[in-house]
Design a protein around this nucleic acid. Structure first.
Length: 512
RNA sequence: GGCGGCGUAGCUCAGAUGGUUAGAGCACACGGCUCAUACCCGUGUUGUCAAAGGUUCAAUUCCUUUCGCCGCUACCA
Protein backbone atom coordinates (compact mmCIF):
# COMPACT_ATOMS: atom_id res chain seq x y z
CA UNK A 1 0.00 0.00 0.00
CA UNK A 2 1.22 3.46 -0.80
CA UNK A 3 2.37 5.70 1.97
CA UNK A 4 0.07 8.57 2.92
CA UNK A 5 1.58 11.81 1.80
CA UNK A 6 1.25 15.00 3.77
CA UNK A 7 -0.97 17.17 1.63
CA UNK A 8 -1.19 20.92 2.12
CA UNK A 9 -2.80 23.51 -0.12
CA UNK A 10 -2.83 27.23 -0.50
CA UNK A 11 -5.91 28.74 -2.08
CA UNK A 12 -5.80 29.28 -5.80
CA UNK A 13 -5.08 32.95 -6.14
CA UNK A 14 -7.39 34.96 -8.30
CA UNK A 15 -5.25 36.52 -10.99
CA UNK A 16 -7.25 39.63 -11.74
CA UNK A 17 -4.43 41.70 -10.26
CA UNK A 18 -0.81 41.44 -9.16
CA UNK A 19 0.17 39.49 -6.03
CA UNK A 20 0.29 41.37 -2.75
CA UNK A 21 1.39 40.74 0.82
CA UNK A 22 -1.70 38.69 1.61
CA UNK A 23 -0.87 36.18 -1.10
CA UNK A 24 2.71 36.02 0.13
CA UNK A 25 1.52 35.43 3.68
CA UNK A 26 -0.58 32.38 2.92
CA UNK A 27 2.07 30.95 0.70
CA UNK A 28 4.87 31.41 3.23
CA UNK A 29 2.79 29.74 5.92
CA UNK A 30 2.13 26.74 3.69
CA UNK A 31 5.76 26.56 2.69
CA UNK A 32 6.90 26.58 6.28
CA UNK A 33 4.66 23.65 7.14
CA UNK A 34 5.63 21.78 3.99
CA UNK A 35 9.33 22.13 4.79
CA UNK A 36 8.76 21.11 8.38
CA UNK A 37 6.91 17.95 7.35
CA UNK A 38 9.67 17.10 4.91
CA UNK A 39 12.15 17.49 7.74
CA UNK A 40 10.13 14.91 9.61
CA UNK A 41 10.71 12.57 6.73
CA UNK A 42 7.21 12.80 5.30
CA UNK A 43 6.49 12.67 1.64
CA UNK A 44 4.83 16.05 1.07
CA UNK A 45 2.49 17.29 -1.60
CA UNK A 46 2.20 21.07 -1.48
CA UNK A 47 -0.24 22.37 -4.06
CA UNK A 48 -0.73 25.97 -5.09
CA UNK A 49 -1.92 27.68 -8.24
CA UNK A 50 -4.21 30.20 -9.80
CA UNK A 51 -7.93 30.71 -10.23
CA UNK A 52 -8.49 32.13 -13.68
CA UNK A 53 -12.14 32.19 -14.65
CA UNK A 54 -15.03 34.48 -13.94
CA UNK A 55 -16.46 37.89 -14.44
CA UNK A 56 -13.69 39.87 -12.79
CA UNK A 57 -10.95 38.26 -14.82
CA UNK A 58 -12.91 38.91 -17.97
CA UNK A 59 -13.32 42.54 -17.04
CA UNK A 60 -9.63 42.96 -16.14
CA UNK A 61 -8.73 41.38 -19.44
CA UNK A 62 -10.96 43.79 -21.30
CA UNK A 63 -9.50 46.73 -19.40
CA UNK A 64 -6.09 45.58 -20.56
CA UNK A 65 -7.26 45.09 -24.10
CA UNK A 66 -6.46 41.40 -24.02
CA UNK A 67 -8.20 38.14 -24.56
CA UNK A 68 -8.87 36.52 -21.20
CA UNK A 69 -6.43 33.69 -21.74
CA UNK A 70 -3.69 36.10 -22.80
CA UNK A 71 -4.42 38.24 -19.80
CA UNK A 72 -4.14 35.41 -17.27
CA UNK A 73 -1.06 34.14 -19.07
CA UNK A 74 0.51 37.50 -18.39
CA UNK A 75 -0.35 37.57 -14.68
CA UNK A 76 0.50 34.00 -13.69
CA UNK A 77 4.26 34.49 -14.16
CA UNK A 78 4.17 37.29 -11.59
CA UNK A 79 2.89 34.86 -9.00
CA UNK A 80 5.48 32.31 -9.98
CA UNK A 81 8.20 34.94 -9.77
CA UNK A 82 7.10 35.90 -6.30
CA UNK A 83 7.12 32.31 -5.16
CA UNK A 84 10.61 31.98 -6.52
CA UNK A 85 11.68 35.12 -4.70
CA UNK A 86 10.29 33.69 -1.48
CA UNK A 87 11.74 30.20 -1.97
CA UNK A 88 8.32 28.60 -1.99
CA UNK A 89 8.77 24.86 -2.32
CA UNK A 90 5.47 23.94 -3.94
CA UNK A 91 5.25 20.53 -5.55
CA UNK A 92 2.63 21.41 -8.11
CA UNK A 93 1.11 24.57 -9.51
CA UNK A 94 -2.35 24.15 -10.94
CA UNK A 95 -4.18 26.61 -13.13
CA UNK A 96 -7.92 26.34 -13.49
CA UNK A 97 -7.55 26.80 -17.23
CA UNK A 98 -5.55 23.59 -17.55
CA UNK A 99 -7.15 20.60 -19.17
CA UNK A 100 -6.62 18.34 -16.18
CA UNK A 101 -8.65 20.74 -14.08
CA UNK A 102 -11.35 21.41 -16.64
CA UNK A 103 -11.84 17.68 -17.17
CA UNK A 104 -12.19 17.09 -13.45
CA UNK A 105 -14.66 19.91 -12.95
CA UNK A 106 -16.81 18.54 -15.74
CA UNK A 107 -16.61 15.10 -14.25
CA UNK A 108 -17.72 16.44 -10.88
CA UNK A 109 -20.58 18.32 -12.47
CA UNK A 110 -21.72 15.27 -14.41
CA UNK A 111 -21.53 13.08 -11.34
CA UNK A 112 -23.55 15.39 -9.15
CA UNK A 113 -26.05 16.02 -11.89
CA UNK A 114 -26.60 12.34 -12.38
CA UNK A 115 -26.98 11.93 -8.66
CA UNK A 116 -29.66 14.58 -8.60
CA UNK A 117 -27.79 17.07 -6.46
CA UNK A 118 -27.73 19.56 -9.28
CA UNK A 119 -31.03 20.72 -10.70
CA UNK A 120 -32.31 23.30 -13.09
CA UNK A 121 -34.38 26.24 -11.93
CA UNK A 122 -35.25 29.82 -12.66
CA UNK A 123 -33.02 32.37 -11.05
CA UNK A 124 -34.61 35.71 -10.29
CA UNK A 125 -32.53 38.66 -9.37
CA UNK A 126 -31.68 42.25 -9.97
CA UNK A 127 -29.22 42.80 -12.70
CA UNK A 128 -27.13 45.88 -13.23
CA UNK A 129 -26.23 46.13 -16.89
CA UNK A 130 -23.30 48.56 -16.60
CA UNK A 131 -21.71 46.45 -13.85
CA UNK A 132 -22.76 43.15 -15.40
CA UNK A 133 -23.56 41.95 -11.93
CA UNK A 134 -26.47 40.35 -10.17
CA UNK A 135 -27.44 41.77 -6.81
CA UNK A 136 -29.61 40.14 -4.17
CA UNK A 137 -32.55 42.30 -3.13
CA UNK A 138 -31.03 42.86 0.27
CA UNK A 139 -27.99 44.53 -1.14
CA UNK A 140 -29.68 47.10 -3.24
CA UNK A 141 -29.48 50.66 -2.03
CA UNK A 142 -32.83 52.37 -2.55
CA UNK A 143 -33.46 49.89 -5.30
CA UNK A 144 -30.29 50.94 -7.09
CA UNK A 145 -27.02 49.19 -7.78
CA UNK A 146 -24.79 49.64 -4.74
CA UNK A 147 -21.77 49.98 -6.98
CA UNK A 148 -22.72 52.39 -9.71
CA UNK A 149 -26.09 53.63 -8.42
CA UNK A 150 -27.76 52.85 -11.72
CA UNK A 151 -31.16 51.33 -12.03
CA UNK A 152 -31.26 47.58 -11.80
CA UNK A 153 -33.47 45.34 -13.81
CA UNK A 154 -35.33 42.42 -12.38
CA UNK A 155 -34.74 39.49 -14.64
CA UNK A 156 -35.01 35.79 -14.44
CA UNK A 157 -32.90 33.25 -16.22
CA UNK A 158 -32.49 29.52 -16.29
CA UNK A 159 -29.67 28.26 -14.14
CA UNK A 160 -28.37 25.21 -12.37
CA UNK A 161 -28.34 24.87 -8.62
CA UNK A 162 -26.39 22.69 -6.26
CA UNK A 163 -28.35 21.32 -3.32
CA UNK A 164 -26.56 22.81 -0.39
CA UNK A 165 -29.71 22.78 1.70
CA UNK A 166 -29.99 19.02 1.48
CA UNK A 167 -26.71 18.64 3.36
CA UNK A 168 -26.98 21.51 5.79
CA UNK A 169 -27.82 19.46 8.87
CA UNK A 170 -25.21 16.91 8.03
CA UNK A 171 -22.56 19.64 7.77
CA UNK A 172 -23.63 21.30 10.98
CA UNK A 173 -23.30 18.02 12.84
CA UNK A 174 -20.01 17.23 11.22
CA UNK A 175 -18.51 20.53 12.30
CA UNK A 176 -19.87 20.12 15.80
CA UNK A 177 -18.43 16.65 16.10
CA UNK A 178 -15.08 17.50 14.55
CA UNK A 179 -13.58 20.32 16.58
CA UNK A 180 -10.35 20.61 14.59
CA UNK A 181 -12.03 20.75 11.20
CA UNK A 182 -12.30 24.52 11.09
CA UNK A 183 -9.62 26.55 12.78
CA UNK A 184 -9.17 28.77 14.71
CA UNK A 185 -12.08 28.01 17.06
CA UNK A 186 -13.71 31.39 16.68
CA UNK A 187 -13.97 30.88 12.93
CA UNK A 188 -15.60 27.54 13.55
CA UNK A 189 -18.19 29.30 15.69
CA UNK A 190 -18.85 31.78 12.93
CA UNK A 191 -19.53 28.99 10.50
CA UNK A 192 -21.82 27.25 12.95
CA UNK A 193 -23.45 30.63 13.36
CA UNK A 194 -24.42 31.00 9.76
CA UNK A 195 -25.41 27.41 9.49
CA UNK A 196 -28.17 28.29 11.92
CA UNK A 197 -29.82 30.17 9.09
CA UNK A 198 -31.38 28.14 6.30
CA UNK A 199 -28.88 27.67 3.51
CA UNK A 200 -29.88 28.58 -0.02
CA UNK A 201 -28.91 26.24 -2.78
CA UNK A 202 -25.92 27.51 -4.67
CA UNK A 203 -26.33 28.78 -8.19
CA UNK A 204 -23.41 27.15 -9.97
CA UNK A 205 -24.01 28.18 -13.55
CA UNK A 206 -23.88 31.33 -15.62
CA UNK A 207 -25.52 31.53 -19.01
CA UNK A 208 -22.77 32.12 -21.51
CA UNK A 209 -24.72 34.92 -23.05
CA UNK A 210 -23.88 36.78 -19.87
CA UNK A 211 -20.52 35.25 -19.08
CA UNK A 212 -18.52 33.12 -21.44
CA UNK A 213 -15.23 32.90 -19.56
CA UNK A 214 -15.68 29.73 -17.59
CA UNK A 215 -15.79 25.97 -17.75
CA UNK A 216 -18.55 24.56 -19.93
CA UNK A 217 -21.19 22.57 -18.15
CA UNK A 218 -21.37 19.14 -19.80
CA UNK A 219 -25.14 18.79 -19.52
CA UNK A 220 -25.87 22.42 -20.42
CA UNK A 221 -23.69 23.68 -23.21
CA UNK A 222 -25.18 27.15 -23.00
CA UNK A 223 -23.87 27.62 -19.47
CA UNK A 224 -20.48 27.90 -17.80
CA UNK A 225 -19.55 27.04 -14.26
CA UNK A 226 -19.64 29.54 -11.43
CA UNK A 227 -16.03 30.34 -10.46
CA UNK A 228 -16.12 29.17 -6.87
CA UNK A 229 -17.53 25.81 -7.82
CA UNK A 230 -14.82 25.54 -10.42
CA UNK A 231 -11.95 26.76 -8.27
CA UNK A 232 -12.54 24.66 -5.16
CA UNK A 233 -12.31 21.50 -7.20
CA UNK A 234 -8.60 22.18 -7.74
CA UNK A 235 -7.90 20.55 -4.41
CA UNK A 236 -8.87 17.21 -5.89
CA UNK A 237 -8.14 17.83 -9.56
CA UNK A 238 -4.60 18.70 -8.50
CA UNK A 239 -4.02 15.35 -6.83
CA UNK A 240 -5.58 12.96 -9.24
CA UNK A 241 -9.22 12.50 -8.33
CA UNK A 242 -10.92 10.67 -11.18
CA UNK A 243 -7.71 10.46 -13.18
CA UNK A 244 -4.91 9.04 -11.04
CA UNK A 245 -6.30 6.86 -8.30
CA UNK A 246 -2.93 5.92 -6.91
CA UNK A 247 -1.88 9.50 -6.41
CA UNK A 248 -5.25 10.48 -5.05
CA UNK A 249 -5.09 7.71 -2.46
CA UNK A 250 -1.64 8.82 -1.41
CA UNK A 251 -2.70 12.41 -0.94
CA UNK A 252 -6.29 12.45 0.16
CA UNK A 253 -7.64 13.39 2.65
CA UNK A 254 -5.88 16.71 2.55
CA UNK A 255 -4.13 17.63 5.79
CA UNK A 256 -4.46 21.40 5.53
CA UNK A 257 -6.33 23.89 3.44
CA UNK A 258 -4.72 27.16 4.45
CA UNK A 259 -6.88 30.13 3.50
CA UNK A 260 -7.53 33.77 4.33
CA UNK A 261 -10.50 34.64 6.49
CA UNK A 262 -12.25 36.29 3.56
CA UNK A 263 -12.83 33.00 1.81
CA UNK A 264 -13.99 30.99 4.78
CA UNK A 265 -17.55 30.46 3.59
CA UNK A 266 -16.79 28.75 0.31
CA UNK A 267 -14.24 26.53 2.03
CA UNK A 268 -16.19 25.73 5.14
CA UNK A 269 -19.62 25.34 3.58
CA UNK A 270 -19.62 24.81 -0.18
CA UNK A 271 -16.53 22.68 -0.35
CA UNK A 272 -17.33 20.14 2.38
CA UNK A 273 -20.78 19.70 0.94
CA UNK A 274 -19.43 19.25 -2.56
CA UNK A 275 -17.07 16.56 -1.33
CA UNK A 276 -19.70 14.84 0.72
CA UNK A 277 -22.08 14.80 -2.18
CA UNK A 278 -19.35 13.23 -4.27
CA UNK A 279 -18.75 10.65 -1.59
CA UNK A 280 -15.25 11.91 -0.92
CA UNK A 281 -13.79 12.15 2.56
CA UNK A 282 -13.37 15.66 3.97
CA UNK A 283 -10.04 17.40 4.45
CA UNK A 284 -8.66 17.27 7.97
CA UNK A 285 -8.29 20.97 8.68
CA UNK A 286 -9.31 24.23 7.11
CA UNK A 287 -7.32 27.02 8.70
CA UNK A 288 -8.35 30.62 8.09
CA UNK A 289 -5.68 33.18 8.87
CA UNK A 290 -6.10 36.92 9.40
CA UNK A 291 -5.24 39.94 7.35
CA UNK A 292 -2.37 42.35 7.32
CA UNK A 293 -3.53 45.86 8.00
CA UNK A 294 -1.54 48.84 6.90
CA UNK A 295 -1.26 51.36 9.67
CA UNK A 296 -4.60 50.49 11.17
CA UNK A 297 -6.62 50.30 8.01
CA UNK A 298 -7.34 47.61 5.53
CA UNK A 299 -5.04 47.68 2.62
CA UNK A 300 -6.60 48.76 -0.59
CA UNK A 301 -5.45 50.14 -3.85
CA UNK A 302 -7.55 53.26 -3.51
CA UNK A 303 -5.84 54.14 -0.26
CA UNK A 304 -2.52 53.52 -1.92
CA UNK A 305 -1.30 51.57 1.09
CA UNK A 306 -0.63 48.31 -0.65
CA UNK A 307 2.75 46.84 0.14
CA UNK A 308 4.54 45.37 -2.81
CA UNK A 309 6.11 42.11 -1.65
CA UNK A 310 8.75 42.32 -4.37
CA UNK A 311 9.91 45.60 -2.89
CA UNK A 312 10.26 44.19 0.60
CA UNK A 313 12.24 41.24 -0.67
CA UNK A 314 14.45 43.54 -2.69
CA UNK A 315 15.06 45.79 0.28
CA UNK A 316 15.30 43.41 3.23
CA UNK A 317 15.52 39.93 1.79
CA UNK A 318 13.15 37.01 1.71
CA UNK A 319 14.35 35.59 5.01
CA UNK A 320 13.50 38.67 7.03
CA UNK A 321 10.17 38.98 5.25
CA UNK A 322 9.26 35.38 5.98
CA UNK A 323 10.40 35.76 9.56
CA UNK A 324 8.41 38.90 10.14
CA UNK A 325 5.16 37.55 8.78
CA UNK A 326 5.41 34.32 10.75
CA UNK A 327 6.73 35.83 13.95
CA UNK A 328 4.88 39.11 14.36
CA UNK A 329 1.33 37.90 14.95
CA UNK A 330 -0.45 34.80 16.11
CA UNK A 331 -1.53 32.93 13.01
CA UNK A 332 -5.26 33.41 12.68
CA UNK A 333 -5.40 36.98 13.94
CA UNK A 334 -5.00 40.21 11.99
CA UNK A 335 -1.68 41.99 12.09
CA UNK A 336 -0.29 45.39 11.30
CA UNK A 337 2.40 45.86 8.76
CA UNK A 338 4.57 48.92 8.76
CA UNK A 339 8.16 49.44 7.85
CA UNK A 340 8.82 50.70 11.34
CA UNK A 341 7.71 47.54 13.16
CA UNK A 342 9.39 45.51 10.51
CA UNK A 343 12.72 47.20 11.17
CA UNK A 344 12.29 46.89 14.93
CA UNK A 345 11.74 43.19 14.57
CA UNK A 346 14.58 42.87 12.13
CA UNK A 347 17.12 44.67 14.27
CA UNK A 348 16.00 43.22 17.53
CA UNK A 349 15.53 39.56 16.68
CA UNK A 350 17.52 38.94 13.55
CA UNK A 351 20.47 41.33 13.76
CA UNK A 352 21.01 41.70 17.50
CA UNK A 353 19.96 38.32 18.82
CA UNK A 354 20.53 35.70 16.16
CA UNK A 355 22.94 37.37 13.74
CA UNK A 356 25.12 38.77 16.44
CA UNK A 357 25.24 35.50 18.35
CA UNK A 358 26.51 33.74 15.26
CA UNK A 359 28.97 36.48 14.51
CA UNK A 360 30.44 36.84 18.00
CA UNK A 361 30.74 33.09 18.41
CA UNK A 362 32.47 32.56 15.09
CA UNK A 363 34.80 35.45 15.78
CA UNK A 364 35.85 33.86 19.06
CA UNK A 365 36.35 30.47 17.46
CA UNK A 366 38.62 32.13 14.93
CA UNK A 367 40.43 34.12 17.51
CA UNK A 368 40.94 31.44 20.13
CA UNK A 369 41.08 28.27 18.05
CA UNK A 370 42.12 29.38 14.59
CA UNK A 371 38.64 28.71 13.34
CA UNK A 372 38.72 25.04 14.22
CA UNK A 373 35.72 23.46 15.91
CA UNK A 374 36.91 22.30 19.37
CA UNK A 375 36.15 18.95 20.94
CA UNK A 376 33.21 18.65 23.24
CA UNK A 377 34.51 19.34 26.76
CA UNK A 378 33.21 18.87 30.28
CA UNK A 379 30.11 20.93 30.61
CA UNK A 380 29.63 23.18 33.60
CA UNK A 381 26.24 24.02 35.09
CA UNK A 382 25.59 26.84 32.63
CA UNK A 383 26.59 24.75 29.66
CA UNK A 384 24.24 22.03 30.79
CA UNK A 385 21.38 24.44 31.31
CA UNK A 386 21.83 25.70 27.79
CA UNK A 387 22.16 22.21 26.40
CA UNK A 388 18.99 21.12 28.17
CA UNK A 389 17.13 24.08 26.76
CA UNK A 390 18.32 23.12 23.31
CA UNK A 391 17.27 19.53 23.81
CA UNK A 392 13.79 20.66 24.81
CA UNK A 393 13.33 22.66 21.63
CA UNK A 394 12.18 19.97 19.17
CA UNK A 395 9.34 18.99 21.47
CA UNK A 396 8.11 22.57 21.49
CA UNK A 397 8.29 22.92 17.75
CA UNK A 398 6.50 19.60 17.35
CA UNK A 399 3.76 20.88 19.57
CA UNK A 400 3.36 24.31 18.01
CA UNK A 401 3.98 23.91 14.28
CA UNK A 402 1.39 21.20 13.63
CA UNK A 403 -1.19 23.62 14.99
CA UNK A 404 0.21 26.32 12.70
CA UNK A 405 1.45 28.26 15.67
CA UNK A 406 4.43 29.78 13.90
CA UNK A 407 4.62 32.53 16.43
CA UNK A 408 5.28 30.35 19.44
CA UNK A 409 7.59 28.06 17.52
CA UNK A 410 9.87 30.96 16.72
CA UNK A 411 9.65 32.33 20.23
CA UNK A 412 10.82 28.94 21.45
CA UNK A 413 13.86 29.04 19.20
CA UNK A 414 14.66 32.55 20.34
CA UNK A 415 14.49 31.52 23.99
CA UNK A 416 17.48 29.32 23.32
CA UNK A 417 19.26 32.04 21.39
CA UNK A 418 18.75 34.48 24.23
CA UNK A 419 20.06 32.05 26.81
CA UNK A 420 23.12 31.49 24.67
CA UNK A 421 23.79 35.23 24.58
CA UNK A 422 23.34 35.36 28.31
CA UNK A 423 25.65 32.42 28.78
CA UNK A 424 28.45 34.18 26.96
CA UNK A 425 28.02 37.19 29.18
CA UNK A 426 28.18 35.17 32.35
CA UNK A 427 30.99 32.86 31.25
CA UNK A 428 33.19 35.62 29.83
CA UNK A 429 35.17 33.62 27.27
CA UNK A 430 37.50 36.59 26.67
CA UNK A 431 38.60 36.29 30.29
CA UNK A 432 39.02 32.53 30.01
CA UNK A 433 41.31 33.21 27.09
CA UNK A 434 43.40 35.70 29.04
CA UNK A 435 43.64 33.33 31.97
CA UNK A 436 44.57 30.53 29.62
CA UNK A 437 41.72 28.28 30.79
CA UNK A 438 41.71 26.49 27.49
CA UNK A 439 39.69 23.42 28.44
CA UNK A 440 36.85 25.52 29.80
CA UNK A 441 37.00 27.75 26.76
CA UNK A 442 36.82 24.77 24.44
CA UNK A 443 33.80 23.37 26.17
CA UNK A 444 32.10 26.73 26.04
CA UNK A 445 32.78 27.31 22.38
CA UNK A 446 31.67 23.83 21.56
CA UNK A 447 28.30 24.19 23.20
CA UNK A 448 27.77 27.55 21.55
CA UNK A 449 28.54 26.12 18.14
CA UNK A 450 26.24 23.26 18.91
CA UNK A 451 23.40 25.58 19.80
CA UNK A 452 23.93 27.55 16.62
CA UNK A 453 24.10 24.42 14.48
CA UNK A 454 20.89 22.97 15.78
CA UNK A 455 19.16 26.32 15.69
CA UNK A 456 20.18 26.71 12.08
CA UNK A 457 18.32 23.54 11.22
CA UNK A 458 15.29 24.31 13.34
CA UNK A 459 15.03 27.65 11.60
CA UNK A 460 15.02 25.99 8.20
CA UNK A 461 11.24 25.78 7.67
CA UNK A 462 10.86 29.46 8.51
CA UNK A 463 13.93 30.90 6.77
CA UNK A 464 15.49 28.30 4.51
CA UNK A 465 18.01 30.72 3.04
CA UNK A 466 19.16 31.92 6.42
CA UNK A 467 19.46 28.35 7.57
CA UNK A 468 21.70 27.41 4.66
CA UNK A 469 23.89 30.45 5.19
CA UNK A 470 24.33 29.57 8.86
CA UNK A 471 25.19 26.01 7.94
CA UNK A 472 27.81 27.32 5.57
CA UNK A 473 29.35 29.72 8.06
CA UNK A 474 29.39 27.08 10.75
CA UNK A 475 31.24 24.84 8.35
CA UNK A 476 28.74 22.03 8.66
CA UNK A 477 28.83 19.30 6.09
CA UNK A 478 25.12 19.23 5.37
CA UNK A 479 23.31 19.52 2.08
CA UNK A 480 19.85 20.99 1.90
CA UNK A 481 18.29 17.60 1.25
CA UNK A 482 19.89 16.30 4.44
CA UNK A 483 18.10 18.79 6.64
CA UNK A 484 15.93 16.32 8.51
CA UNK A 485 15.22 15.54 12.11
CA UNK A 486 16.86 12.17 11.56
CA UNK A 487 20.06 13.86 10.54
CA UNK A 488 19.90 16.04 13.64
CA UNK A 489 19.91 12.99 15.86
CA UNK A 490 23.27 11.87 14.59
CA UNK A 491 24.96 15.09 15.66
CA UNK A 492 26.08 18.02 13.59
CA UNK A 493 29.46 19.28 14.74
CA UNK A 494 32.68 17.67 13.66
CA UNK A 495 35.55 18.70 15.93
CA UNK A 496 38.63 19.50 13.95
CA UNK A 497 36.79 20.93 10.97
CA UNK A 498 37.01 24.57 10.11
CA UNK A 499 34.32 27.14 10.40
CA UNK A 500 33.70 29.47 7.55
CA UNK A 501 32.86 32.86 8.97
CA UNK A 502 31.33 35.31 6.56
CA UNK A 503 29.82 38.72 6.87
CA UNK A 504 26.92 39.29 9.30
CA UNK A 505 23.84 37.44 8.12
CA UNK A 506 21.47 40.24 9.10
CA UNK A 507 23.24 43.60 9.07
CA UNK A 508 21.45 46.12 11.26
CA UNK A 509 19.21 48.57 9.50
CA UNK A 510 19.82 52.19 10.32
CA UNK A 511 16.38 53.68 10.33
CA UNK A 512 17.52 57.25 11.12
C1' G B 1 -31.49 43.64 14.64
C1' G B 2 -29.28 38.48 15.73
C1' C B 3 -24.86 35.62 17.17
C1' G B 4 -19.73 35.98 18.82
C1' G B 5 -15.41 38.45 20.60
C1' C B 6 -12.51 42.26 22.76
C1' G B 7 -11.30 46.54 26.26
C1' U B 8 -4.63 44.43 31.08
C1' A B 9 2.09 48.98 31.72
C1' G B 10 3.83 54.78 26.90
C1' C B 11 3.16 51.03 22.53
C1' U B 12 1.95 45.71 20.83
C1' C B 13 -0.04 41.91 23.34
C1' A B 14 0.19 37.19 27.04
C1' G B 15 -2.40 35.47 31.27
C1' A B 16 -5.34 32.95 35.35
C1' U B 17 -11.32 25.89 36.09
C1' G B 18 -11.22 32.96 41.30
C1' G B 19 -6.37 32.76 46.04
C1' U B 20 0.12 35.03 48.42
C1' U B 21 4.54 40.59 45.21
C1' A B 22 -0.45 40.71 37.48
C1' G B 23 3.63 39.10 33.00
C1' A B 24 6.64 39.43 27.99
C1' G B 25 8.68 42.20 23.98
C1' C B 26 9.51 47.16 22.39
C1' A B 27 10.44 52.08 24.37
C1' C B 28 12.73 54.77 28.55
C1' A B 29 16.55 55.33 32.82
C1' C B 30 20.86 53.70 35.30
C1' G B 31 24.86 50.21 35.69
C1' G B 32 28.23 46.24 33.69
C1' C B 33 31.07 43.99 29.75
C1' U B 34 34.20 44.28 25.33
C1' C B 35 34.05 38.33 21.83
C1' A B 36 30.40 40.83 18.63
C1' U B 37 26.47 44.00 13.77
C1' A B 38 26.92 51.25 18.96
C1' C B 39 25.99 44.72 20.01
C1' C B 40 25.17 41.75 24.57
C1' C B 41 24.09 41.27 30.00
C1' G B 42 21.97 43.19 34.69
C1' U B 43 18.72 46.45 37.50
C1' G B 44 14.66 49.73 37.58
C1' U B 45 9.94 52.99 36.50
C1' U B 46 4.70 53.22 35.05
C1' G B 47 -0.90 49.60 35.62
C1' U B 48 -7.88 51.76 40.45
C1' C B 49 -6.35 44.38 34.74
C1' A B 50 -12.89 49.83 30.66
C1' A B 51 -17.13 51.53 34.48
C1' A B 52 -20.91 50.15 38.07
C1' G B 53 -23.33 46.41 40.74
C1' G B 54 -23.69 41.15 42.29
C1' U B 55 -21.96 36.00 43.91
C1' U B 56 -17.80 34.64 47.34
C1' C B 57 -13.83 34.06 53.03
C1' A B 58 -11.45 36.06 48.42
C1' A B 59 -12.62 38.63 41.57
C1' U B 60 -8.72 41.72 37.26
C1' U B 61 -10.33 36.30 36.52
C1' C B 62 -17.56 34.00 37.44
C1' C B 63 -22.67 36.63 36.74
C1' U B 64 -25.60 41.16 35.37
C1' U B 65 -25.82 45.99 33.42
C1' U B 66 -23.51 50.31 31.03
C1' C B 67 -19.95 52.57 27.77
C1' G B 68 -16.41 51.91 23.77
C1' C B 69 -14.25 48.95 19.76
C1' C B 70 -14.36 44.74 16.36
C1' G B 71 -15.92 40.26 13.66
C1' C B 72 -19.73 37.18 11.34
C1' U B 73 -24.63 37.35 9.53
C1' A B 74 -23.94 38.06 0.64
C1' C B 75 -24.31 34.06 -5.83
C1' C B 76 -18.68 39.99 -5.05
C1' A B 77 -11.77 35.70 -5.14
Amino acid sequence: MGKKRFYITSPLYYVNADPHIGHAYTEIACDCIARYERMKGKEVFFLTGTDEHGQKILRSAEDNGKAPIDFVDSVVPKFKDLWKGLSISYDDFIRTTEKRHVDTVQKVLATLYKKGDIYQDEYKGFYCTPCETFWPKMQLEDGLCPDCKHKVEEISETNYFFKLSKYQDWLKNYIKETPGFISPGFRRNEVLGYLEEPLNDLCISRPNTRLSWGINIPFAQDHVTYVWFDALINYISGCGWGSDDKKFKECWPCDFHVIGKDILRPHAVYWPIMLHALGVELPKTIFAHGWWMMGGSKMSKSKGNVIDPFEIIEKYGQNAFRYFLLREVTFGLDGTFSEEVFITRFNGDLANDLGNLLNRTLTMVEKYFDGVVPEEGDMDEQDKALDDKLKGLPAKIDKFLPELNFNQSLISVWEVINIANKHIEVSKPWQLAKENKIERLKALMHILLKVLSYSALYIYPFMPGCSLEMIKQLGLDIKEKDITFDRLRSGLLKPGTKINKGSPIFPRIDSN
